[in-house]
């Protein structure tokens, strides 16, 4: 195997090792940042890591395994950064990797995308009628007509009997009316 004379052999071995176990790391571990790291810090880490593992810096390396390892790391670092720079995806991802499903959720995959879409849709109702009524109700709240809002939300309940968020919202508004 051709060794790269411009790279310390220990660093080269370490890099190949990291590349081989990328699939066991979550995105925070990939970036070397805490789960509550501010967005600016993630960006700084992203730049630092790209400096260390940029494929261009190894373009002429005679060691094909090292070139491959660097490329795999660079791709995963970019993937981690892209997901974590998006606040919504980051919130979901951070929840997912703390859950019992962690092992299956280390990469933000199709399932994550689907789940996030469903979560978003359910934010305001699970059925088209429910969503429409809820939207109208929130409009009424903004106008100060809480009574009208409650009427609409209760009608929405007819379509979505098991919607916990909807129940909670009705509870909130009823508490407001009592005051």
């Amino acid at each position: 195997m051709a060794e790269d004379p411009n790279v310390h052999p220990v660093w080269a071995a370490e890099t190949k090792h990291i590349a081989s176990c990328l699939d066991q790391l979550d995105y925070y571990q990939v970036l070397g940042a805490a789960t509550d790291a501010p967005a600016e810090e993630l960006k700084i880490r992203y730049h630092q890591l790209q400096r260390n593992y940029h494929p261009d810096a190894f373009f002429t390396s005679p060691d094909p395994e090292l070139r491959d390892a660097v490329r795999r790391i660079a791709k995963r670092v970019a993937e981690a950064y892209v997901i974590l720079r998006d606040p919504e995806k980051r919130a979901k991802y951070t929840r997912d990797i703390a859950s019992p499903e962690r092992v299956k959720k280390l990469r933000y995959n199709d399932e994550s995308v689907r789940e996030q879409r469903i979560e978003k849709e359910q934010e305001l109702g699970k059925t088209p009628q429910g969503r429409q009524l809820w939207k109208k109700a929130e409009e009424s709240v903004r106008k100060g007509d809480v009574a009208a809002a409650l009427r609409d939300l209760k009608t929405a309940m007819l379509f979505e009997k098991d919607n916990e968020r909807l129940k909670a919202r009705i509870g909130e508004l009823e508490a407001q009316v009592k005051k």
Binding site: P55, R71, A74, K75, A78, E79, Y81, V82, R107
Partner: peptide
Amino acid sequence: IDKNTPIPIDRTR
């Protein structure tokens, strides 16, 4: 893969 994603990148399905 969304536009404006840094490259190189990969995605598996």
